[in-house]
């Protein structure tokens, strides 16, 4: 279970998150929607522990563990995964090598045995098959020369291999065609089980047709303004933030 209570955070002294309260019970998938600049990515970075995102108050617990006290890599070993809105390029670093290093680092941290190249390859190929991705994804350098869609799919591949217990997907669906969107959705749905939970950040209802969320939250101005069931996402899609009486929240989704 992820529990966020009274979380406030700033960047360069500028308050961005202004008191977030959010609980995602184990086994549930929640969606976060909200206008551009409302703090969705900031929230995901704060949860993952990025430098420069200063937490000024509140607490975050993942299954009772104080996440904010951990380094980013410790959060990863604790089972947290962030699919980046803008995945980062690592020139010269092969995707397979990167993934194996990451997987073994988290396994080591959890006291599990490391996988050798052969074992890893088997696991990675299976993940590729499940996601209908080509094997050459593993040979390429991490995100270098990837199209926007390939980058997003690579995030999903990493998630499938690292098998987190809590995943945050930050606009992983943006800019994807419908086929790619289904791949992303499949990636999340394949992980769905009683001990897995996720926070799916999106602008679009259509993703939520494939990943049906247990709850939908509207984030604006660094706060959760509205929470509801899947019908809230549909209402947003139809009438926009203004239609829900949220017009005072800055720019809306285009």
């Amino acid at each position: 279970m992820l529990e966020i209570r009274g979380l406030t955070a700033e960047i360069d002294g500028k308050p961005i998150l202004n008191g977030i309260d959010l609980v995602v019970p184990t086994g549930e998938v929640h969606a976060i929607m909200g206008p551009n600049g409302s703090g969705k990515s900031t929230l995901s970075y704060v949860l993952a522990g990025r430098d420069g995102y200063q937490v000024t108050g509140g607490e975050v617990r993942l299954d009772g563990v104080d996440l904010l006290a951990l380094a980013p890599e410790e959060r990863a070993s604790a089972g947290l995964f962030l699919a980046f809105q803008y995945p980062v390029e690592l020139p010269g670093v092969g995707n397979a090598n990167f993934l194996r290093t990451a997987l073994n680092a988290t396994r080591r941290a959890r006291g599990e045995s490391e996988l050798d190249a052969v074992q890893f390859l088997k696991l990675a190929r299976a993940a590729l098959r499940d996601l209908a991705m080509a094997d050459d994804m593993l040979k390429r350098n991490v995100n270098v020369g990837f199209s926007g869609g390939e980058k997003k799919r690579n995030e999903v591949l990493q998630m499938a291999i690292l098998k987190p217990k809590f995943a945050i997907l930050d606009e992983t669906d943006s800019g994807l065609d419908i086929d790619a969107l289904k791949i992303v959705a499949n990636g999340v749905n394949a992980l769905r089980r009683p001990e897995f939970s996720a926070l799916v950040i999106t602008h679009y209802q259509r993703l939520l047709d494939y990943i049906v969320p247990d709850r939908v939250h509207v984030l604006a101005g660094g706060r959760i303004l509205r929470s509801g069931g899947p019908e809230l996402a549909r209402a947003l899609e139809e009438s926009g933030y203004a239609g829900l009486g949220l017009e005072a929240l800055g720019e809306s989704v285009s």
Binding site: G49, A76, L82, F84, L90, G92, F98, T101, A102, T106
Partner: peptide, 26 residues
């Protein structure tokens, strides 16, 4: 870049392993 280091660390690599990986890639 900070974002490269953070990206690696968010996947479970220590700061040192992240630097090594990036340097080896370079």
């Amino acid at each position: 870049a900070d974002d490269q280091l953070f990206y690696c660390r968010s996947r479970g690599l220590s700061q040192e392993d992240a630097v090594n990986l990036i340097v080896n890639g370079f």
